[in-house]
Design a binder for these strands. Structure first.
Lengths: 239, 239
DNA sequence: CGCATTTTTGACAGCTATCAAAGACCGTGG
DNA sequence: CCACGGTCTTTGATAGCTGTCAAAAATGCG
């Protein structure tokens, strides 16, 4: 499923077959992780990056009273920690939100790759800047959207991102998040997530059962969320 | 005051004098802006970046009902929109939060600079990744910290960032934000910001008058905020 | 000195949190 | 194939943090 990665890149710029081959060659190994596993701990030194192939991961931080906030979700095709290449250590944990499979790319292979293909340096720089754009949209959600719109917005975002990765089936996609985990993304309690979910269902906007989310009325869901996909930069142009 | 920029860079890595000279040579002109001015509008094509020299700017988004959320504050020494170099257009507005002065750096000068100094490419990549790290911490604040801790955290962050830029005077710094603008950073209403500010004052943690913030008890303020500066990456090491 | 903006106050509403417990669901093992 | 234990979802009652609305007081700029 590393194809998801190239779909993601090629949604934003041309990637030559030489570049693709070089990227593929940076993968040192593949690893599998169980659900709810801490892949990288805040503060730890990083010498490799993790390209997610299957499953979902998240970036999370914890406060002293145990409250956890997830600041971004990674889906197949995403690097969960490419920012670690320049930061050297992370300011957050990386955790699995389902069982996962990932390709491991050592930093000492990324460096020569980017030297050889300066274009890829800009493309991957852009990918981390898109992460930041997603963070900004989450900031807007947490700061200004009420629970219903906030949840609707998250479902819209994931729909678009998964579609780019080729992981949307009709109007639905696998969403492995528990309501507890959803609440940690949305800055709510699990109880309130449950009630908000019911309200979205009651209005005929979504279905959500056995870890599969179905969007019944995308235009309405987007309108409630005030969702505009511009922050996902779905334009193919020279970077 | 472009020195603030080099102080910021040199807090994270060595910058040679050749690199410094090359960076200085990329500046095409300087501009001044009045308070509350929109420097760049969401969606607009960018062909230059803005290096803030004096004053504060912010990145903001607006919802249809007029609610505004500021997702990050830029202080002197920061590029407000370096991510525009790879993104080509922005997903947010850039607005002044005071009168400002800035150096304008055309993108067609950045490209050759980074080709000539690949090290600077990594350094500036890192700077945008630090922006993302700040976004993540704001996400944690908005999602999980109550008003008091959230505000305390913002004051701590700005204290550290301004200190790096050489703009802290003892225990105080110029903070041009109105309570309305503070509320737009913190995801609160202006009224509640006012009350929260009073509570911080009542506890003897800060003073805040005539646009100057004084921290009276930094350790306590940090502890209320659960502030840990690790996400600001104040370590000098090869990037 | 005077108007506009910003800060402050008070009363009240409401969204979301808290606490506790019942019901569903699910993978595991017999 | 069914029982079993744990996790996840759902529900109900109540609390409380933060929002809303309106107006007075203070501040600041021209």
């Amino acid at each position: 499923m590393i194809e998801a990665h190239f779909k993601k890149l090629r949604a934003r710029d041309e990637i030559s077959s030489a570049e693709e081959a070089a990227i593929r060659a940076t993968v040192a190994e593949e690893r599998e992780y169980r659900d709810n596993f801490t892949v990288a701990r805040r503060g730890a030194e990083l010498s490799e990056s993790t390209l997610l192939l299957e499953g979902w991961m998240g970036r999370s931080k914890i406060l002293s009273d145990g409250q956890r906030q997830i600041s971004e979700i990674s889906v197949p095709g995403d690097f969960t920690d490419l920012h670690g290449f320049t930061l050297k250590r992370l300011d957050h944990d990386v955790v699995t939100l389902s069982r996962c499979r990932a390709a491991i790319v050592p930093h000492d292979r990324i460096r020569p790759l980017l030297d050889r293909f300066p274009h890829l340096a800009r493309v991957y720089w852009m990918m981390t800047n898109m992460d930041a754009a997603i963070h900004r949209e989450w900031t807007l959600s947490l700061g200004r959207r009420a629970a219903l719109g906030r949840m609707a917005h998250l479902f819209c975002e994931l729909f678009v991102r998964l579609k780019v990765a080729g992981l949307v089936d009709g109007q639905s996609y696998q969403c492995p998040l528990s309501q507890q985990e959803l609440s940690e993304c949305l800055g709510l309690t699990a109880v309130h997530v449950n009630r908000t979910l019911q309200e979205l269902r009651r209005r005929g906007l979504i279905e959500f059962q056995s870890r599969r989310l179905t969007i019944l009325d995308l235009p309405l869901l987007q309108s409630i969320a005030e969702f505009d996909a511009d922050y996902l930069y779905l334009e193919k142009r020279p970077r």
